[in-house]
Design a protein around this nucleic acid. Structure first.
Lengths: 187, 187
DNA sequence: CGTTTTGCTTTGGCAGTCGAAGTATCAAAC
DNA sequence: GTTTGATACTTCGACTGCCAAAGCAAAACG
């Protein structure tokens, strides 16, 4: 056994966030653990998948985001919003995908400041053939569920999603009041 | 700017389902959409959170993974496994965290090839003060649910998690409750 | 012993990411 | 019509993330 001399105790006292939480019940814990497993499994799987398409995860994601739009075209700003990254990042990604002929820039007529990123046929071909990261493993299991289970699952997932989204819009969670200083910065 | 539109990829319909779109029922689709929303919201939020601590997402994650171990210490190999990255990457991350005094390398006595990565007091302080990415926003909503809803939610989530990590992915990373009590840990 | 295996670090290289500065365009006020 | 200020995007520079492969010890095996 490893007995590193670490007397640091992870004292698991209660969480005190806000007025309402005195302790996190096991149930919350359980659901969070499940959520994490979901995200972790998916994340790792997504990496593999992108790799199989000879793309990076971000590139594939951008491709999917754009392909998902009604005309397989989207403005960089929107893409950035959807992906949760900056415009600069989108530019870089689009550059790379363009170099591979998977997407294409097309200037807007209405507003010439704008550019549309469009998926090319080649790009669309990839998107069509790469199963969605979640899908491959998920669909199989999901379809095997009883009818009522499926319905319940959806309801629950949407509920969770709503919980998270709602806060995301508000986005000024507790911690914003101050930074947490990590000690000496060695940049 | 952190605008998370509620219309998140709801417009999606047929794409990315590959050649056999028709075989996938709407329900599967609906649940996948919800799952994506969950992951997206969480991912983005986690970035912000790490940023507030002047850390990168990966660095924070490593810190949390290690702090979560029984002795707040872990071997690089295990960390890599938990995080789904290579050993080399772990080395790099540990280097950076070490430079900031948040973790510490400590050679093992029994096997001198091994090194333990230990969270320092400073590091522990950060972990304690960073509410878990999910937790903060999630707990609030979750605790407000009816009893039966909570139970159902857990069942569903665990079911999904089970669907996804068919691989023996270790499941209980981070999540031991956040603990906003700051008190300096005395060794 | 020597050989292989194991655990970690180093190296080299590419991709992702952002902030800040730059460019072009539109839009509204003058 | 010109000025002024926003908007949409790109460029630039600097960092981090990540990995494969090579390197280095120490341990385990024979």
């Amino acid at each position: 056994m490893r007995q590193i001399n670490s007397d640091i105790e992870v004292s698991r006292t209660d969480m005190q966030l806000g007025p309402m939480t005195s302790s996190i019940p096991d149930r919350t814990d359980a659901s969070l653990i499940a959520l994490r497993r979901i995200m972790r499994a998916t994340e790792i799987y997504a990496r593999d998948l992108a790799h199989q398409a000879h793309l990076t995860p971000s590139q594939l994601r951008l491709l999917q985001v754009v392909a998902d739009e009604t005309d397989s075209a989207a403005k960089p700003t929107d893409i950035a919003g959807q992906m949760g990254v900056s415009q600069a990042t989108v530019t870089a990604l689009v550059d790379k995908l363009t170099a591979r002929g998977l997407v294409q820039r097309r200037p807007s007529q209405r507003d010439r400041r704008q550019t549309y990123v469009c998926v090319t046929e080649t790009g669309q071909g990839i998107v069509d053939n790469i199963p969605d990261a979640l899908q491959q493993r998920y669909v199989r299991a999901f379809t095997a569920l009883e009818d009522w289970e499926q319905a319940q699952l959806i309801a629950s997932l949407e509920r969770v999603a709503a919980m998270l989204d709602a806060d995301a819009i508000d986005a000024s969670p507790i911690l914003t009041s101050g930074d947490i200083s990590p000690g000496p910065r060695t940049k």
